[in-house]
């Protein structure tokens, strides 16, 4: 069963005339790593907040593990199933000490103190921040803060984590820390990961890539399939990885290279083979 399923989802912000989402139908398979790509204002962040009932649809519905997010009695069930991590790490850390922050969600859920301690330690170890458990969050680097935020969500033991542009405010080092952490969560812990981003390079490791534009899904497939649609991505104001772009440009010049070479090595292999 899909962990998140949206049916004909429409959404308009209060006080605004234009609809932000126009009928989104999407199923996220449990255990998969899905990247959602789109330029600013494409509706991708709105979608994230609809996934855990922070926003509620105007039309259509969102099912989390089969539960409708408008079902008020089940709201906590929805939110502990789908955890959200946001862009600005400073604005989602609530406590003065790292481990107290990670404990926040299980405390809200009324978990027993011993069990909270166990979950906090395990979440911090998973994101590699256990040694920093007594630190003050404002003294950490951006990447470290974002990993603490991920641990804070992990402590709810969610089945799915949705990250809304988690790397937008980070430097390259922090970006790599966060992406490798979420990739590991999906591959080793079996947690569903939905990564919302506009960095192409972060999507390469995903199982599936969904491209949003003006509140609609305009492409959906494996990264190889989607990045091969170079013209579409360009017209959406998105760039493609340099590897794909090179192959595309060379093909324009009459080469015949497979467009699905994504990594540097795959690209070099393809070009080198064509020259042999």
């Amino acid at each position: 069963m899909a962990i998140i399923r949206t049916e004909n989802l429409h959404f308009t912000y209060q006080g605004e005339e234009n609809e932000t989402l126009h009928g989104v139908n999407l199923e996220i398979e449990e255990g998969s790593f899905v990247a959602i790509l789109g330029h600013n204002g494409s509706g991708k962040s709105t979608l994230a907040k609809l996934f855990n009932g922070i926003l509620l649809p105007n039309e259509g519905r969102v099912l989390v593990n089969g539960i409708d997010t408008t079902h008020e009695d089940k709201l906590l069930d929805v939110r502990r199933t789908v955890g959200l991590v946001f862009q600005n790490p400073d604005n989602q850390i609530v406590a003065n000490v790292v481990e107290d922050d990670v404990a926040f969600a299980p405390e809200n859920l009324g978990v027993e103190p011993d069990e909270i301690r166990r979950r906090v330690d395990s979440a911090l170890k998973t994101v590699g921040m256990y040694e920093y458990r007594q630190h003050a969050p404002h003294l950490l680097s951006g990447g470290q803060k974002q990993r603490v935020a991920i641990a804070g969500v992990l402590a709810m033991q969610p089945r799915c984590i949705v990250l809304d542009e988690p790397t937008a405010m980070l430097d390259p080092v922090g970006r790599r820390e966060v992406i490798s952490t979420v990739t590991r969560l999906c591959r080793e812990e079996g947690i569903t990961v939905v990564l919302i981003t506009h960095h192409m390079s972060e999507c390469i490791g995903a199982d599936r890539l969904v491209v949003m534009s003006e509140g609609r899904i305009v492409a959906d497939g494996t990264p190889r399939e989607v990045f091969a649609q170079v013209e579409l991505l360009r017209s959406e104001g998105l760039s493609v990885p340099v590897t794909t772009e090179l192959i595309y440009e060379l093909n324009q010049d009459g080469w015949v290279l497979p467009l699905d070479a994504l990594t540097v090595d795959e690209c070099a292999d393809a070009v080198a083979a064509a020259l042999k």
């Binding site: 907040k49 939110r79 969600a105 009324g110 969500v153």
Partner: peptide, 18 residues
């Protein structure tokens, strides 16, 4: 929004780690 996403719903039924 971040607090709500982490299931904050006031002091009722809240436990403490320490």
């Amino acid at each position: 929004v971040a607090m709500e996403s982490r299931c904050y719903h006031g002091g009722e039924g809240r436990t403490r780690m320490n």
